[in-house]
Amino acid sequence: MREIKIFNTTGSFAENKDKAREIRINFIIPSLEKKEKVILDFEGVDSATQSFIHALISDVIKQKGAGALNNIFFKNCNEIIRKLIEIVTVYMQDSV
């Protein structure tokens, strides 16, 4: 199980899509490829944009299928971040 604190990369407002992409490419995908489970810890992140969440996880679902969500855990999400993650995961599963 590998864990990353999103706040350390983004600060309290997670909006930089390039940073989301970095987390995905350098952390999420390599971990999943090693069959490790991933924890994305949003502690300290007050808000995010849909674009950030999209850049963070959409390509994981696209590449690895919806089953990838069985191995990704979203921790310490406030309600807004939770809703945004739900939006992205739903439309991604509609798309794949």
């Binding site: 674009s51 992205v88 439309y91 991604m92 798309s95």
Partner: peptide, 10 residues
């Protein structure tokens, strides 16, 4: 559809 960085939602 969506691309790696965009979903057409903003």
């Amino acid at each position: 559809g969506v691309s790696e960085m965009n979903a057409g939602a903003g």
